[in-house]
Amino acid sequence: MSDRIIQTDNFSHYFGAIQTLKNINLEVRRNEILGIIGPAGSGKSTFLRALNRLNDLTYGSRIEGTIKIDGQDIYAPGTSIVELRRKLGMVFATPIPLPRSIYENVAFGAKMAGIKSKSELNELVTDCLVKTTLFEEVKDRLDSSATKLSGGQQQRLCIARILALKPEFILLDEPCSGLDPISTMKIEESLRQLKNEYTIILVTNNTKQAARVADRTAFFLNGELIEIGQTEKIFTTPADQRTNDYISGRFG
């Protein structure tokens, strides 16, 4: 099996007349953490949302080029979007628990997929909460509302909710932008562990976070992929002057 499991080929994206991504060519490798950095409006979130076709929800969204996952073009007609989204679990910038209990939040995806067995669901929920180190903190109040958890706990719950989909990929869209340093540290810690089982794409505004956890890092600017490479290389000897300017804080 090829090591490159996501491959984009001259991928461009438009919202109406505005081009948000320009000819992106990159690949994602199995069990890596790919960090995507870049200033606001650089297209990094749009790229992430193109991968699970969440942009489709916005009227006027249009693409050119291809994105292949395991060799399959995900924009080919006849692709099951529901299956695709289960394969690429997404965590958003602000933790958005569904207005339901902790248990129901984690079990939601599985229930939508048609799993009804109570014991199977119980096992799944426990398993996913353990993986995100949330289980010990919430095991006595699985039936209480998820909105009562702290911000950091909510974000870990959102990750647990994704794991319950049994995805291959985890897409994170600035998952720590609203969190304190300790919660951020806990999330980064779970990402390092999750890497063994999943392929992770982490969009972040915090370049230091990419430096800490990403194996490879991509730098986006104005809808273009400027540079992609091993994280150390991007952060020590970037090939492009613009990358250098961005990571050294000269703009963005």
Partner: peptide, 15 residues
């Protein structure tokens, strides 16, 4: 109903 709840639901593989 906040729009991002829709996004969350879709991203969790709901129809």
């Amino acid at each position: 109903v906040p729009y991002n709840l829709h996004e969350v639901s879709y991203s969790l593989g709901s129809t």
